[in-house]
Design a binder for these strands. Structure first.
Lengths: 339, 339
DNA sequence: TTTTATATTGAAAACGTTTCCAAAACCAAT
DNA sequence: ATTGGTTTTGGAAACGTTTTCAATATAAAA
């Protein structure tokens, strides 16, 4: 266990330099290589990564800072990042910042101390705005939410377009008074709100945007009250899977029927959205691809550090399901709209 | 950026030792402390963790090796582990072994190289059986699935009892031909299968146990075929959230009605289980506590390395919901049982 | 004052690797 | 044999910290 490279060298009857070369597939004669490998085996030698990193000045490690690991979007992304990183011989340190700018700053500092060679980061609006790439020694790829325009590489969804498309879908299905529920911590929420507004005003409808802490509990709470207001919404659009979940719970509690009393749609094709009732209408994001491409982009950046910063925009796809398909829309909805 | 401790020392006009002491809150006069802090600030100095760890021989890091990060059980556990670790001033390296013994071995080796001070591990049966604690320099706490009896600390659910209880519940609600669907990679599956068998034989029923790769796709596939067999099950019990999901999808596809045509129950109170139909009956595990207690146990073990190994057994709670509450059980089920 | 104890400080030796550089060994060609 | 060129090898100097140890400064006691 406590064996060092020196012990291996002694046992194999060679210099430490030779052992080091064996371990890193350097040029060593077959005979010596074998001796060294035997010695390694016999002593149960395990190299010390700290020493190795210190000397070689290379960590072979990237950081991944996500905003909420409970969100299936991020677990999918992190799997993808790991897969690609692993193939490139890199390790991943996964950090969960909990939508908390302080934690984000803390983790960025930690990444700096770890001397990682790059970071993939989904920042809150606060962190995104005040992010200064020059303060870090490593390149950063933003995901989900981009930072200051062009400041770093980024891969994002066309949130505005997607939200507009989803809103259009609700409008096309006869819903008029549509409420928009958005996360208040990331840029994503704001962009999706903008897309929602685009579509609403384009159709002459008044928009009703509400921002909330991005978690199902908060969404549930807010929607419960919302549904008690005199002019309660005929449909709800939620800006991510967690919010959609909260909204669904609130609607269930209210006793309103989906989709006839109220329509429900949102982002993220989380596994449960296809299972409740006749299914929830959602914008599906290419979750795995987002992670894989972000890691690809980071690797490419490490190869050519001087390249201009790139923004990669992906598109979501609308999955129209039962939650926005009222049997008799005009009728029921209009009647409930004008009591 | 590229500033070392030496540069800070030079700028502050002190020795590197003093700087080091400032950084680790050692005994330093207020005046010098201030000078040093100013210098740190001015140079944007950031300590090198590799060097620090190498010299201090302490990594302040624990490893967490989970078998499937897509499983909400493990995301919940990992949050808990992180919370507790963080409060104790430790970092967590999260590794996803994908139910793959090779990956598990690889990650254990990596942990050894990282010189982590401890590991929390949910092994596959294969790894659990062949796990040799003496081959590692760090203590291990097994979760979800224990290793060779008493070989390490462990925190687990009373799987056998819980599965038996769940089976009893199905029997009590009139179901007789109950199929059991279990994961084939972990000890958890086997234990739960045993509990299921206990209850079935206690009630004079024939048990029908099937093991499957623990993922929703495989479960879906298997259950689809299962439901086509001549004597199709009247109820299904799934040994974790992923399998339960697959089973549900298959049942949906078959057109059978829950709970009247077929009952459905399983483990893990994943968020969606409360939302589909009248809800799915599940055994809820104290997921957060499992993680928190595992980390606690690891910290305690680090404090007292010679203590005897402990096995901490927690209990699940049955959440009886609509999926096992047939309106007219005797009738419908008997009729479909004897065509 | 002088002495003794205590709190701060700095010089230098680790920590376990990799890598530079020069020496040694080999091989082929003269 | 001698030369010239490859490969292989080993010695020793890094890498950036922490920590030991002795030295100095400060405070308390005599």
């Amino acid at each position: 266990m406590g064996a060092k490279i020196k012990d291996v060298a002694a046992l194999a009857g060679v210099s430490v330099a030779t052992v080091s070369r064996v371990l890193s597939n350097g040029p060593v004669s077959a005979a010596l290589r074998q001796q060294v490998e035997a010695a390694v085996q016999q002593l149960g030698y395990s190299p010390n990564l700290s020493a190795r990193r210190l000397r070689s000045q290379h960590s072979q490690t990237v950081g991944l800072i996500v905003s909420d690991i409970r969100n299936p979007f991020f677990t999918a992304v992190s799997r993808a990042v790991e897969d690609v990183a692993y193939q490139a011989g890199m390790r991943v340190i996964l950090c969960n910042a909990d939508e908390n700018p302080d934690k984000e700053a803390m983790y960025l500092r930690l990444m700096q101390e770890e001397r990682v060679c790059g970071v993939i980061f989904s920042p809150t609006t606060v962190s995104a705005r005040r992010f200064r790439p020059e303060r870090f020694d490593f390149p950063v790829v933003m995901i989900d939410r981009a930072g200051p325009a062009g400041a770093t590489d980024a891969v994002v969804l066309d949130n505005r377009q997607a939200a507009a498309q989803l809103t259009e879908h609700l409008l096309a299905n006869g819903y008029r008074r549509i409420g928009g529920l958005f996360g208040n911590s990331g840029a994503t929420g704001a962009e999706r709100a903008a897309g929602y507004r685009d579509a609403m005003t384009a159709h002459g409808q008044k928009s009703d945007v509400r921002f909330v802490v991005p978690g199902s509990e908060a969404a549930d709470h807010l929607v419960r009250q919302w549904l008690c207001e005199p002019a309660r919404p005929q449909a709800l659009l939620a800006s991510n899977g967690l919010l959609l979940l909260g909204a669904l719970q609130a609607v269930r509690a209210s006793g309103l029927a989906i989709p006839d009393d109220i329509g429900l749609a949102g982002f993220d094709n989380d596994v449960w959205t296809g299972l409740v009732g006749e299914g929830l209408t959602v914008i599906e994001q290419p979750v795995y691809d987002i992670g894989a491409m972000a890691m690809d982009m980071l690797l490419s950046r490490l190869r050519s550090p001087t390249l201009a910063n790139r923004l990669l925009v992906l598109h979501g796809t609308l999955l129209a399901r039962g939650s926005t398909r009222p049997a008799t829309h005009q009728v029921r909805i209009e009647s409930s709209a004008a009591p």
